[in-house]
Amino acid sequence: MKITIDGKKVEAKRWDTVLTAARRAGIAIPSLCQLDSLENVGACRLCMVEVNHPHWRGAKLVTACEYPVESGLEVITTSEEVLRLRRANLDLLLARAPESRRLQQMSAEMGLEQSGYVRPDKGTACILCMLCTRVCEKLGCNAIAPAGRGLDKRIDTPFGGYPDTCIGCGACAAICPVDCIEMTDTAKTRTIWGRTFEFVKCAECGTPVITVEYRDYAIAHRSLPADYYNECSDCKRRKLAVKFAKVGG
C-alpha cells in the first residue's frame, strides 16, 4: 500500500507501523524505547507524529512506533506541534536523567540546551523505557519487571528480592539508555540485581567470559556446541592465527 510521509510517497506493508515504514524510506524519527525485535510500548513519546487521512475529519497526534499504517495515510514527522511535543517530553526526560549521554545527544539534535524543570528528588535516573524488562522477557528470564506506579514506579526483581531467574547476562544494563542499572564485574564475579554470579573463565588465559548461568542458558537454548563458550575472544583469535600461520608457512 502507499502512504505519504512528509510529502514523500512511500510503499508500506500491512502491519507496518508508521515508524518502520518511515525508517525503511530513510526518514528518521527519534525514539528511545522502541526496538524492532521487542513489543512496542509507546513509553517515551518521542516518536510522536501527526497523521491524517483524506477520509478523516482531522489530523491526530500519535506515536509512530505503534500506529499501524493504512492505505492513503498522510504522515507529517516534523510539524511545529510535533517538534514541540517531542521537545517537551525530552525536556521532562532530561530533568530525570541529565547525565545520560544519549539524552544529551538527542537534546543537542533537537536544540534543547538543558532541562527547564527541576530534577525529581524521588527515584533514580531510570526513564522507564522498559527496554530492560522487555529484553529480559525476550530472553525468557523475566527476572525483572516494573513495580509500583506513578513516581514510585521502578524496575525491580519480584518483590524486590533475590532474582531466581536472572542469569547475569547483563543485557539489561547494556541496553539501558541512561545507564542506571548497576552491574559490578570483578575478575571472578558479576553482581547485578543483588545477586552475584561466578564467571566462566577463559580456559587459556583466565579472563572472565560469561557467567556460569548464562553459559548454561546458552547451551540449553542455542543450537551451538557446549564448548563454544569456554574461551575469550582474544584467545580464540590467537589460536586461529597460529593455525593460519602454520598453514601459510
Partner: peptide
C-alpha cells in the same frame, strides 16, 4: 500518585 507511570508526559 495514580499515574501508572508507563508514559513520560503523564509520569514526569
Amino acid at each position: 500518585g495514580e499515574s501508572c507511570g508507563k508514559c513520560v508526559p503523564c509520569r514526569e
